[in-house]
Design a protein around this nucleic acid. Sequence first.
DNA 1: CCCATATATTTGTCACACTAATTATTATTA
DNA 2: TAATAATAATTAGTGTGACAAATATATGGG
Lengths: 148, 148
Amino acid sequence: MLTEQYNAYSFLLERTARRIKQYAQYQFNCGDFGITVDQWSILKSLRQHADLSQKELAEYCGKDQPTLTRIVDLLVGKNLVERRANPTDRRSFVVHLTPEGERKIDTLTVNINEIRMHAWQNLDEADFEHLKRILNTIYDNLDIGGKS
Amino acid sequence: MLTEQYNAYSFLLERTARRIKQYAQYQFNCGDFGITVDQWSILKSLRQHADLSQKELAEYCGKDQPTLTRIVDLLVGKNLVERRANPTDRRSFVVHLTPEGERKIDTLTVNINEIRMHAWQNLDEADFEHLKRILNTIYDNLDIGGKS
DNA sequence: CCCATATATTTGTCACACTAATTATTATTA
DNA sequence: TAATAATAATTAGTGTGACAAATATATGGG
């Protein structure tokens, strides 16, 4: 049965993704960063695009809205971001980095970049290009709703 | 900042893995398979290696033991597997496919292989080889405990 | 045999993903 | 304008992942 191999590839991909996250989270914990890997990705997104609405933030980070709501809850609890009224739409908030959030980013950026780098040892530019193309191909193959 | 790109690669990999699982689960739900993607991977493992202990099963599936315990609980609840006493070690069980579990596998295998295949359209053998090598390299780069 | 240590499983807690349903608000259109 | 549909955010429910602690059993050295 030849199609069995696709199961194997899927497995390999999921396993590797889990390991990347697990490794990063492990290092986060060792360094007492006081934050999870996913929370960090929200902060980083806000640094690059200030004051996004939760919906925009969800899309940008590739998370769904309920998940994003909860992550924002946790970040609010840590005083790293705050919800501000959206002047043009009272249904939505904009998520704003607090000064403490800004400081957190400045403090951790170098450490975290170094942690992230570990995954990619022994690989070269050509590998990255391959990987990027392959992953994007897969991603496009699986567009369920066609909402993009 | 050059190291930022590694964040992007990590993001891409996690996003693609999520999408693969999400797509498969979506199709599982559409087909009323009555089972999750992870539960399916347990059943498949048992088909290939009958009557593994939970620890062996966890290792083989790449899940940790508490997670596996809970998935087995769910499968037991659906009468697809059963826990049997391990004759050589009273601490452990062996997980055994019930006739209903066997039937479930036979019924779904063809459908699921087809679902899995969708992810890999527009890719060729060389791509698979690249991907496999790159993912395994990353996996090996991130061995935390060195327990393998 | 007794004790310390190791192992297999379970339980508890927190975080995240997905679905469905709810609420409040905005946009549309009849 | 009034009714309807669409949208942003939330909540609830289930499943999964990681980690720590608890329990029961095995195994080794004295």
